[in-house]
């Protein structure tokens, strides 16, 4: 008797689910290498709250979160508006050097290696 085919079944398409198994965290690791301090971010949102470009799409908190989850597609639009004014770094309660992270991220997004 042939065994039942256990690979058959249905799956809904287009899931919003974050798949940590497939997450690509290489960019995140490269950034951490350059700026290890930003691992202590607690996503409190102080940075975005004070951001000069905060109303124009700049969102470091979200960018960091997406980096951690390996979803890098939106990163450019989330960091392009940054003017490097430095207010975020002055208010971060965890002393993350946010400005340096964003600067390096902008460069890494343009340099392929």
């Amino acid at each position: 008797m042939k065994p039942a085919n256990d690979k058959w079944g249905f799956r809904a398409e287009g899931s919003e689910q974050i798949n940590l198994d497939k997450a690509d965290s290489s960019l995140y690791r490269r950034l951490l290498n350059r700026e290890p301090g930003f691992a202590v971010c607690l996503f409190c949102g102080s940075c975005r709250a004070t951001c000069t470009s905060g109303n124009e799409g700049m969102n470091f908190r979200l960018a960091h979160l997406l980096l951690q989850r390996g979803e890098t597609a939106r990163l450019k639009s989330l960091t392009d508006p940054c003017l490097l004014c430095g207010k975020c770094t002055l208010v971060c309660p965890r002393n993350v050097n946010i400005r340096a992270v964003v600067y390096n991220l902008k460069i890494m997004l343009h340099e392929p290696f």
């Binding site: 949102g45 102080s46 975005r48 709250a49 004070t50 908190r61 208010v91 309660p93």
Partner: peptide, 23 residues
């Protein structure tokens, strides 16, 4: 609201306007 208040400023009538992020 989960998120930090970054700054507060005062309006002409003394009310306080605050900026925060709704994370």
């Amino acid at each position: 609201i989960r998120g930090r208040v970054s700054e507060a400023s005062q309006m002409h009538d003394g009310t306080i306007q605050l900026k925060a992020e709704d994370t």
